[in-house]
């Protein structure tokens, strides 16, 4: 464990908790893409199937349980409890265009052709594009609530910090994983224009609005 990975996990946890609290406190999921949240629930489910079979540390197991629990709770709040506030008119990104290619690629490019490893690879590929429905929704509505932009900033920072973690691990212990690295680079690149808007607008107290 190094500081970048720890900060990355912390940033990821903060993002997940911010979103859950936003929906719960405001009793509304306006501006939130339920489709992205479904993809994140699939990412955690397919990645953490070894939750009970492969014990790494208390930290690892507890974080996995928190991620899975929170992601399913978020999906439930969006499609169950507060579905009246769900913006189904704008949350229309075709997630099958993300699921199918990720699944096909996971079969073609992986470290080991075993069920667990193919599912892990699928979750890595899917996670790299899982935010697209959310970014699509923000572009369609043309703006995002400030709390939603904080959520996106924390979520985008998590994988950026993981890129630094892999840089650190490469130079300190020669470790590298091209599948995770390339997916992580794509994932982070998708946030670039958002990061620019966040830093140039939200941090100056303005609302995040995309140029019309």
């Amino acid at each position: 464990m190094n500081v970048f990975r720890f900060l990355g996990d912390l940033s990821h946890l903060v993002a997940i908790v911010i979103l859950l609290l936003k929906i719960w406190k405001t009793r509304s999921c306006s501006g939130i893409s339920g489709r992205s949240q479904i993809l994140f629930a699939i990412v955690f489910t397919t990645r953490y199937l070894d939750l009970f079979s492969n014990f790494i540390s208390v930290y690892n197991t507890s974080m996995k349980i928190v991620y899975i629990t929170c992601s399913y709770a978020t999906v439930y709040l969006i499609y169950g409890k507060f579905k009246a506030t769900y913006d189904f008119n704008h949350d229309t990104f075709r997630i099958e265009f993300l699921l199918v290619p990720s699944a096909i690629l996971a079969f073609l490019v992986n470290h080991d052709f075993s069920p667990l490893e193919i599912l892990w690879t699928f979750s890595i590929y899917l996670e790299s594009v899982a935010i697209l429905p959310q970014l699509f929704l923000v572009s369609k509505t043309g703006e995002a609530e400030t709390i939603t932009s904080h959520y996106l900033f924390a979520l985008g920072s998590y994988r950026l910090l993981y890129l630094l973690n892999w840089l650190w691990r490469y130079f300190s212990q020669g470790f590298y994983d091209l599948i995770a690295l390339l997916s992580g680079i794509l994932q982070t690149v998708l946030y670039c224009d958002f990061f620019y808007l966040y830093i140039s607008k939200v941090l100056k107290g303005k609302k995040l609005s995309l140029p019309a």
Binding site: I56, N60, Y67, H111, D112, N165
Partner: peptide, 10 residues
């Protein structure tokens, strides 16, 4: 390739 890749990251 039969490698036991243990993923220790979240």
């Amino acid at each position: 390739s039969k490698k036991n890749v243990a993923h220790d990251e979240l």
